[in-house]
Amino acid sequence: MSNENILSIKNLNASFFTSAGEVQAVRDVSFEVKRGEILGIVGESGSGKSATMLSVMGLLGNSGKIKSGEIFFKGQDLSQNIKDLRGKNISMIFQDPMTSLNPVLTIGYQLKESLKHYKWQGDINARAIKMLERVGIVPAEKRIKQYPHEFSGGQRQRIMIAMSMMSEPELLIADEPTTALDVTVQAQILKLIKNLQTETGTSVILITHDLGVIAGYADRVLVMYGGKIMEEGTRREIFYNPAHPYTKGLLRSVPDPDKPRKRLIPIEGQPPNLLTPPKGCPYAERCPQALKECFEKIPVEKIFPDSETHKYFCWRECESC
């Protein structure tokens, strides 16, 4: 991991405009991705983790819109350049390998399609076969002519990974890449992503709701809730020294299979409705330690003592500091 920022997002605000009104999915989000790191983004549904990534990729669709903020990829403003970079320098894999592939085209066609657009210098067919072999789809020469339905779920996700790595991207965004897969297959796929990342030096943004996946594979972690970042730090900082009450609550609510069973400690209440986001901290409603100002003002960034990497957004002084 180097200190060079490959992606830098500043004060991003993005909304979806629905029949019910404006859903403020991403609210004032800022962070960086460093070259060669795996940045994990953990959050529950509606936390804004996927919407942030769709903003980066320019894939918010007709109902979504970036309202303000900056997204820079290696110093270039992405709002101008995303169409030239998407699929080449930045690629993405999605949660559902069943619907991400076109069922009426061979996987070979789909693998090669991504490069045609960018006038790849070299033998596209050889590259496709090499990538298929790399992700463990063998014999690649034969399987490249097959259609998506001839592969299992895990194999399809491998094909998606091969496709995303065809152009040797510098940033790979993996949005819940293993959520639809079984646990033994999940382990295979995560290892594959990790190995490819080590071999090629690609930066990876790994989005998941599974704290175990984050603990095992991320270098740094962003914790998101209600469209905002709650806490940011290295994997060890987040798991061993969480500062934000939401991070603490999340870590407490999952059972530890290595410890004798005791009653779980849930986070009471429900996540906020982003049609009418709360005025203050989005977690204040559910936070057992909320102060009066938590309901009124959005918390400012605090730096954890003696750390350059650990930040959190909370009005309270954290007890573990």
């Binding site: 299992s152 603990a215 994997r235 299979p257």
Partner: peptide, 20 residues
């Protein structure tokens, strides 16, 4: 099973299953 604990996770010896 992914364990929500970085140290345990690093030590975990995953016994991979081939195929599906």
């Amino acid at each position: 099973i992914p364990v929500p604990d970085p140290d345990k996770s690093d030590k975990l010896k995953n016994i991979p299953l081939a195929g599906e």
